[in-house]
Write a protein that binds this DNA or RNA. Structure first.
Lengths: 136, 136
DNA sequence: GCTTGACCTTGACATGATGGGAAGGTGCAC
DNA sequence: GTGCACCTTCCCATCATGTCAAGGTCAAGC
């Protein structure tokens, strides 16, 4: 199987497959006489695993660990759960920060006329760091 | 005022001030005879404006637009509100995606023993794309 | 005057995950 | 034997920020 076919089959672009090989996330693929990379069922499984992990937001470093655990028959599921838990905590923290920014910005927007006039509490906040005087 | 003092005063690192100058986000600062950058009150206001906008998660491109509007006395507040609204929408979309990943992962984690045994629905999902058979 | 240390200058390189493109070789169908 | 789709490697770009290095400048103390 060529890299293009593997890409279609797994949903990982050919570009990224080469990249993952280069950074050592996956083993170097076999080659044809002409130098084309060749992929078998096992390789496709690994690539699909990586794509699903990426879809769940895991970083490359985390995926590296997950792959190692996956291929370790003597693994402890607690290790997997810990990695997942850390990742969930990171994502929740990101959500919290986003939520905070959204809340501030929506509050400012609510007090902005949003018409042709130049007065704007959003710019005022950015310029002075203070909310408008007539604000709740 | 030197770049270091300006950095402390505005909360923007000296490195980033130089960077913002290089990409044209701020005007090139004045220089002393020895080539040191010099900052006045107006420059500090601009840098503080940028820092607050960054704190609210605006991208450099958006800040560029906000700065232009800020310095435009004939601006329409609707333009500012539109930029803010787009940014809020982007952040909400990011939150939605994060929430989805968190939900999936928490669901899988809930069914993982997390002990010394190797069985793990998290790895199983990553490997096969399917949830366990005994799953709700 | 000379040293020292804190600060400034520019420049290059790194992050993380991915995309884009150029220049050239390969495989296959017509 | 030609054309096209695919493959190869290599380089550059993103985005905002950090780190490091080599060298210039300033002010204070001796």
């Amino acid at each position: 199987m060529n890299i293009g076919e593997a890409a279609v089959a797994t949903g990982v672009t050919a570009k990224m497959i080469r990249h993952y090989e280069q950074i050592g996330l996956i083993h170097a693929a076999g080659r044809t006489g002409a130098g084309y990379r060749v992929y078998g069922p096992k390789d496709l499984s690994t690539l699909s695993f990586i794509r699903r992990a990426r879809d769940l937001g895991f970083s490359i470093a985390q995926i590296r660990d997950l792959l190692a655990l996956w291929q370790d028959r003597a693994r402890a599921s607690g290790d997997v759960k810990r990695i997942a838990g850390e990742h969930v905590a990171e994502m929740k923290e990101k959500m919290r920060l986003l939520q905070e920014m959204v809340r501030t910005l929506e509050h400012l927007s609510a007090h902005c006329h949003g018409d042709d006039r130049p007065d704007c509490p959003i710019l005022e906040q950015l310029a002075t760091g203070k909310a408008g005087e007539d604000c709740c």
